[in-house]
Design a protein around this nucleic acid. Sequence first.
DNA 1: GCCGTTTTCGGCCCGACTGTTTTCAGTCG
Length: 588
Amino acid sequence: MTTHQYTNHDVAEHLRLIANLKEIKGEGRFHYLAFRNAAEVVDSLGEDINDIVAAGKLTDLPSVGKGVAEVITQFLASGDSDLAAKLRDQVPISLIDLLAVEGLGPKKVARLWQELGITTLDELKAAAEAQKIRQLKGFGAKSEEKILKGIDLLARRGDERTPLGVARPAVLGLIADLKAALPDDAITAIEPAGSVRRWKESVGDLDILAITPRPAEVMAAFCSLPQVRDVLWRGETKSRVRLKDGLECDLRAVAQKHWGTALQYFTGSKQHNIELRELALKQGWSLSEYDLEATGRGDAPAGEKRHFAAEEALYEFLGLDWIPPEMREARGEIALARTHNLPRLITTADIQGELHGHSNWSDGKATIQEMAEAAIARGYKYWLLSDHSIGLGVTGGVDSEKLAQQRDIVEELNQGWADAGVDFRLLLGVELEILADGRLALTNDVLAKLDVVVASIHSSLRQDRETITRRALNAINNPHVDILGHPTSRMLSRRPPTEIDMERVMRACAETGTVLEINAHPVRLDLNDVHARRAVDLGCKIAISTDAHRPQHMDFIEYGVAVARRAWLTSENVINTLPWDKMQQALK
DNA sequence: GCCGTTTTCGGCCCGACTGTTTTCAGTCG
């Protein structure tokens, strides 16, 4: 069995290191951008790059040519590359840290190094405090102040991204407060843009786009919102603030006629936009956030402008179907839109019920009946009660006897709904603990009596790759285990995924008909989008569930559906879009 | 360094804002 030492992410980081060193060294823009582009490609790859190298398919990847392929091959074999070694001889590697300081880019870092001999953050701080930096042409007192502030910020904040589950409510709150602070006619339209609109699992900052006849008034109100700690930029049409919780937020104001191009532009992703602009250029148009302008190389006379009040019209003009924001990651969606082959993405309306949830019999906060009634209120046709089994220390889990008691309750409740003509079924299952040694916490004869079994790992999360993978495979190979819950056990910005070999797990699920869960809780989002895409490519079925521990958690379903949409999933890929009888047939 | 619906050579997205400038380079998204 192949156990690889270096992951896709390791490779991407190595390529980024090379790009950064090349940039500081002053190599041409396109030489280092090539490495950065390749890093993005490798990072969003569903397959293990070791397998791609083994198959000799490396240069089939976009942005990977001879040079990048050579680096990747060397890195996978040795953990380093000749190119990186050569660059480290020429450029002090600690300069990379300086790039993280706000306002410092490669050009300035290179000058600080060459003209003042600064190579570390400590030296940079000392030089700024001693007012030595202002001696350099192009730097002044304000530059020193900004550098010191930047270093301070870096020490306190790190470079962590914010989970979508925090960012999305924050941006919706800002929009609501901004509207409330202004007269009704000041804002014609306002929307979150950027990675929040693309439902990316974590975001670097917040973006808001507004149509307004009076941008100055809107900018002023925005900069004085109570959430704002610092105003970083304040312009006519664009402002950037730092909020009290440390998040940064951009607001852009545009005129009505620019809405289509502006919303498209500020939604990104950056790479999607670059591809779209390249496509426009081929058709003789230069695309900006304001308009399309003819370059003169196409049919229209140079300088002719086209405006788009809606995104759909812009995409259509370029010969494309409208691309849902969740797909705009430069993963081949533009080619599909061109040939009218975009998938019909799943929506929350397709969800017929949930297949993972808890009651106060384990660590949930509501009764079985309360949870089921919340599911009914959402229009679901079924809901799986799956309390933790015994074997998980922190929650008094259910055993054979308690499951029998739950069965009585479930049957009584179902009878009541049937008598009342309510089209709903409460299903009885369990969230089965996969123990540290790979055994399951309940016996097969107990599991056989349940409607659906979700098996999950909650403990011994630091086991090595082989051990924890075998643990999951034991569960997958059990004929009674229907669903593998939150497969990597990661918690966004709290703990990393386990070392589990997802490629092996997904292949085993495809072979056995075991369903993989997209856990919709915004802290988990596990499977993530890349894994979900790969799982479906390998023939796996998916379930999307919120893992609700109280009724309100069922609102999280939109986060899980968003992961599925980012993975290009349709309702056919997801079993809980089926009516309950067909759904049960889809289980093994 | 990568890439091809004009191309194996000659391109490679576009604009706002800042700090330092007397007209712009650098950074950022």
